[in-house]
Design a protein around this nucleic acid. Structure first.
Lengths: 247, 247
DNA sequence: CGGTTCATTGAGCCACATCAAGAAGTGTGG
DNA sequence: CCACACTTCTTGATGTGGCTCAATGAACCG
């Protein structure tokens, strides 16, 4: 389930300029390089469990994960989708408030709690980057609350596809915006999608079909989604269209 | 609408040990004391508007406010309820992502953006407190996403009352936990409550009535809510009952 | 005391949930 | 390459929680 794997040099790291280390200078990076280990997980592995002690932090290097909570009767809500460069763990608290689960094979860059917390205190570039990332996540969580609280099922789907496209576009290897359309690789099953959107799997599936029939998306094998007109999808998500294409 | 008002000494401040200044030592406090001004706002005043430039930060000293977004068609979702000691504004970004509106008379302790951002950089006690507060808000926002996405109207109401009781209990002058019950002063109208819960005003009102008829709460004049058995209300909110009374 | 805002209640409807059945992928062993 | 099992996805039929529309009641305030 969990394996240690060879560590890549930070300079070759795919998330070098987006993760907690983004603002580090070469000296600081050298310290991080000493501390880090790599771990790989299989699909479905639990990277953290709600209420469980966490003696480490990690950055996602490759793969995706969800952060979710499950109520006693089985209802589940995903509260965050973690992509490469996202951070797992909360400095100043030894427990995770949510379950974190790998959506596919995941590679983590891992730091032990005590040494990393000391590093944060002593390295303003890391502390400041962590602050920026937390505030971005806070904004994202609040944006998502608007979606969950006030949008229809169709709007939720559209908003999710738009948001995922934008997030992938910021990273590398994301959707290819060629020929007037974008291709998106969904990392979630319909059920995981439903848990993220606060819907049932059936409603999620029906709305995907509806968007397809309306020509807003094309559903392809292997969970690939083609978006012929990104602006049109944004409009479905109730956007005021002031943000140009993709970004 | 806005007025400057006489500044209180930090040592007499009701939020001295909960706001951004909580970890400051006397020297640091003296610097803050030089920088701060007080502002008072009337009910309904906009403390910030989504997309608007913000050249300052503030802490709520007294009163309550909501953070919300309104879609073009008028649907509104509140994404946060701000109580005394809560912070308004986001270091590193000059614009507010949400509307912030006073629920009643509000007093703010205000700092100008540039001088405060410099202070944050130079004062680890402030930076660290800001980090802790942001992470707490992030957890709260994610907790709320679970409520919005997966709970029934009745559970939403119960969860909100429970959460508000706990937040007031941490501050001063909150609910009085005397005689086997708690009295809670709601700072929101039914409409504001509905916007926070992702419901309509009618459903909100009906569920309040239902909770009253079931003996879980007592509705009193002036938006006062009496909770005879806090644990019973927690159970309605779908809590696993591992957190003792009130906290 | 009359205007205004806020809250409650009722009747009917609709978007989404639930229940149920297949269809389409995906992986494994022969 | 196929047969089989299993998971994922789609689609249909029906139920229902919360929304909409509408009216009345209660509280607040000049």
């Amino acid at each position: 389930m969990v394996r240690l794997s060879p560590v890549k040099a930070c300079n070759d790291c795919p998330i070098r300029y987006r993760a907690v280390c983004a603002e580090c200078d070469p000296d600081e990076l050298a310290v991080l390089e000493q501390m880090k280990t790599y771990q790989t997980f299989e699909t479905g592995a639990h990277l953290a469990a709600a209420g469980e002690d966490l003696d480490h932090f990690s950055s996602i290097v490759t793969g995706c994960a969800t952060m979710s909570r499950t109520l006693e009767d089985g209802r589940r809500q995903t509260v965050g989708l973690l992509l490469p460069s996202d951070f797992i763990g909360r400095p100043g608290r030894g427990q995770s408030a949510f379950d974190v689960q790998a959506l596919g094979p995941v590679t983590l860059c891992r730091f032990e709690r005590h040494s990393f917390e000391r590093l944060v205190r002593e390295t303003p570039h890391i502390a400041s980057r962590l602050m920026t990332m937390s505030l971005d996540e806070l904004d994202a969580a609040r944006d998502w609350a608007v979606v969950l609280g006030r949008m229809t099922a169709r709007e939720k789907l559209a908003a999710f596809l738009v948001s995922l496209t934008r997030r992938f576009a910021q990273g590398a290897g994301g959707p290819r915006p060629g020929g007037g359309g974008v291709t998106l690789q969904l990392p979630l099953t319909r059920e995981e999608l439903a848990d993220h959107l606060g819907l049932t799997i059936e409603t999620t599936s029906r709305q995907m079909t509806a968007l397809r029939k309306d020509g807003l998306i094309d559903l392809r094998p292997a969970r690939e989604v083609f978006i012929p007109d990104f602006g049109a999808l944004c409009a479905e998500a109730g956007e005021d269209g002031d943000g140009g294409p993709i970004v």
